[in-house]
């Protein structure tokens, strides 16, 4: 057991560096991944923004950014899924499992690499936000808490992605995920108020973890947000930490268990 622990860190680092080597060899997908949210900001901020009503007559781009941060974190599930499902389908995961290496490291390396990727992506998007006129108004401490909350959301989505990928037939299944994340993104408070949706749909949108993170982001950054009403809407920060913690508590152990017993 002690050898397993001693090996966990260097092995995790070796596998994290593997992902860096991927980025160096194939920079295009990484760059596209970083720039896509920027494109979304420009599209919604300048094309659709004029037609949107912002609470308190605030600036639409001030309103938009927290939602875009949260959505970018959720969309990160695609790259996690593709990487893990690809390794499993090609037998690389089996090779790792037949080797005297730390088995925690295979998942740990994925988590570390994807979290670094998410941090860089968030930084790019924050810079983009600053460029289009978005600001934080509640001081650096609250802003840092918002960033931590967003990264926690990415971590939760990461474990969900690992679990789904370990259970998937192959990396091609990512197409299903790509289709499913869009309704998840729009069925939230990111672009419009759930108040404007039909009753039951509005309730789903309010309970969407993405809405919690977007709402908490608006509160912590001091950006304009939708008027409250229900309990979830009034407690976005609690929900924005609660949802990811629940997801991690479910899917991290499930993933580890499934990895250990692959095909058992």
């Amino acid at each position: 057991m002690s050898t397993a622990l001693r090996r966990a860190l260097p092995d995790t680092w070796t596998l994290t560096r593997r992902t860096f080597a991927h980025w160096a060899r194939q920079p295009a997908p990484v760059l596209v991944g970083l720039l896509f949210p920027v494109l979304m900001v420009l599209m919604f901020g300048y094309l659709f923004g004029g037609g949107m009503d912002v609470p308190g007559r605030g600036d639409y781009r001030e309103f938009l950014m927290p939602g875009m941060f949260a959505m970018t974190m959720v969309f990160g599930i695609e790259s996690t899924f593709t990487a893990v499902a690809g390794d499993t389908a090609r037998g690389v995961t089996d090779r790792f499992r037949s080797m005297p290496m730390s088995h925690f490291a295979v998942l740990g390396g994925r988590v570390l690499a994807d979290m670094l990727h998410a941090a860089v992506g968030l930084l790019v998007l924050i810079c983009c936000g600053l460029a289009v006129g978005w600001r934080w108004h509640e001081g650096p401490a609250r802003a840092a808490l918002a960033v931590a909350m967003l990264l926690l959301l990415r971590l939760a989505v990461l474990w969900l992605g690992i679990y789904l990928a370990l259970r998937a037939k192959g990396p091609e299944s990512v197409a299903i995920l790509q289709i499913l994340v869009w309704p998840l993104g729009f069925l939230s408070n990111v672009f419009v108020s759930p108040d404007t949706m039909p009753g039951w749909l509005g309730v789903i949108a309010e309970w969407n973890p993405l809405s919690a993170s977007a709402g908490a982001g608006r509160e912590l950054f001091g950006n304009p947000g939708w008027a409250g009403g229900s309990w979830v809407v009034d407690h976005p920060i609690l929900m924005a930490f609660g949802w990811p913690l629940v997801l991690i508590a479910i899917f991290a152990p499930l993933s580890v268990r499934h990895y250990r017993g692959l095909g058992r």
Binding site: A21, H22, Q26, R90, G91, V92, D94, R95
Partner: peptide, 15 residues
């Protein structure tokens, strides 16, 4: 042990 599985278990992106 060493294992050579049915499909080449390699990282295709790397050299």
């Amino acid at each position: 042990i060493g294992l050579l599985g049915q499909y080449a278990a390699l990282d295709e992106v790397l050299g």
